[in-house]
Amino acid sequence: MRHRFANLTLASVSYPLRMMPGLGWLRSLLGNRIGLIGLSILVPVLLLAVLVPVLPFADPFKTNVSVSLNSPSLEHPFGTDKLGRDVFSRTMTGLQTSLSVGFLVAGITLSFGLLFGTLSGFFGGKLDRLVMAGVDIFLSFPSLLLAIGLVAIFGAGFLPVVVAIAIADIPRAIRLQRSLVLGIKSRAFIDAARMVSATPGWLMARHLVPNTIAPMLVAASITAANAILTEASLSFLGLGITPPEPSLGNIIREGQMYLQEAWWISTLPGLVILLIAISLHLVSDGIREVLDPRARKS
């Protein structure tokens, strides 16, 4: 009587079909169309960025005024900048920085989100109120603004940028994990485990985190994409990675001055950022679809 019989959806005419849980989803991701498109962009770009030092690209720091502001050619696929540096190899080097920022931020955010979100959601009470009050305060700042403020304090450079962006993203991750934990906590299998005196540690490690890790990973890949965009914005504003160290943002910033004569300096690296962001989103969509086939319908 309490049970709501499924209405006129697929579920009413067939028993619910769910994907195999466990690690099988990674294999399924390769079989998922959207996930595969995402991976097929992301993986080559990643490889390219990692292999920049060993590939026969032009030296990203070598100036040569004789080829100043040359348009894209076979020799310089992305053209050259005012000082005659090769924009393509600068972009690839910047890409290395971008991806490092993205994955570092995603990793830090995921860890802190899992830790505080789980504790806050599981124990509730004073701890929860304290954590959530902190989260509310941090979420009162628009994220880029918070990062700008923090970078203003920490100073420019790779590490400050990573820390600043992570701090701006962590509250969101905590809130997500907390709400996921609250959802799982009310399910009967938690009662079933408590019924045999399972400790909080057991409950969190065996029941809560395994059931929340998947959506958290989805969120983390989006965090990575956003972090890359934020880093680019910060560097563009002159607050992130500062020249001569190339970053996608500061290359575009430098190119802005020559927008009319040399459109390629600003536009082509931007396209690379867009490509990475899209691929990360596609991968996250793929993971979501594989984990929850119902998401495909909507």
């Binding site: 914005s233 575009i252 802005q256 600003s266 536009t267 931007g270 950022i273």
Partner: peptide, 12 residues
């Protein structure tokens, strides 16, 4: 997903 500063530059 387009970086807004990049879109701004394109429009400009």
């Amino acid at each position: 997903l387009m970086p807004s500063f990049w879109m701004a530059l394109l429009l400009m």
